[in-house]
Design a protein around this nucleic acid. Sequence first.
DNA 1: ACCTGAACACCGTTCAAGT
DNA 2: ACCTGAACACCGTTCAAGT
Lengths: 198, 198
Amino acid sequence: VDAAIELADAHGIDGLSMRKLASHLGAGAMSLYNHVANKDDLLDAMVDRVAGQPALPDRSQGWQAAARQFAVETHQALLRHPWAITMWQTRWPGPNRWLYMETLLAILADADFTEDHADLAFHAITMHIQGFTQQQVSYTTQFADGDALYARFAAEVKAGSFPHLIDHVRYHNDGGTTQDEFAFVLDLILDGLERKGR
Amino acid sequence: VDAAIELADAHGIDGLSMRKLASHLGAGAMSLYNHVANKDDLLDAMVDRVAGQPALPDRSQGWQAAARQFAVETHQALLRHPWAITMWQTRWPGPNRWLYMETLLAILADADFTEDHADLAFHAITMHIQGFTQQQVSYTTQFADGDALYARFAAEVKAGSFPHLIDHVRYHNDGGTTQDEFAFVLDLILDGLERKGR
DNA sequence: ACCTGAACACCGTTCAAGT
DNA sequence: ACCTGAACACCGTTCAAGT
């Protein structure tokens, strides 16, 4: 599983095949099937290993601080493995992921919300982690080079017709905001949940 | 492109191959390459067709109402084509998607935020649309049958060790909230943006 | 208990040949 | 200008055979 993660980190998830993984491990192509049921099984194990990376936060610091720290650590773990976020969002959870969910739910239980509001809070927070990370990963993997992005964009969009869009892309190309956008929107959500949950 | 969307709607995106699409159209396998550069090109065209579905909202109703309506329509269009959300988040935009982004940016320009805050708003809103839709699609495609979900979950998670998680799953299995969670969290974000942007 | 090569049923795509 | 079959370089996986 570690070797598979290594390969996916280096060459992307499309560059990971059972045959390449086996030869990377110096084994015959079919030896893998003694350790893994099939490729799906391997992919599940890979995501679940990432799900084990964020440290479980100290709940005594209060629900909002604990949730914030957990979210930031998850965000960082997913950025370390750019192939992971898509599968994180679409595959069935493994043991680490179950524990991960249990931990976030326990943090939210400390907030003493109603059952409905706690559920909204859970989905709003995980949605932010996943949505924001997905956006950032897509952006950075496609456009490692900001200039190449801008050139391709400029070639496809006729200057006159999309004024706001062109401004937006120029804004990002110039470096964008100095704020930590992940934390800003996260706090927007956490504050809103605290206020509306009372 | 329409035939490809039809096939993907019916059999999932993994069930779509160039060979199957061609034979579905009653053509030889390689005829497709006269109309499309390669499979990537076809997939781009498919997502972009979905990006053309949400109606462009009337901006005279105010930025918040217009953004809300646009978000809801996008959410619904993406639910109609469950394969689309993943590619929407990872592929380079086409003409309809550029217009889509321009439209949302124009709506936000009506709010007269600072440049930084308008950018935060743009990403917070698209993040919600994409993150929430992805979550919902993953849930419903994997677990068309709620009972099967519950059975598989119960088999993997030992009852004693994950009390909050088990409560959470039971809550959803019992029907969950009656609220429209998509709209609730969307308004949480839109209200927060309005308040913090002044 | 673990490994493996041959084989099968698929892929996307190139190319030369057709109309 | 559009179509197409044969061929190539890949896949994941089964199975029978090995140690």
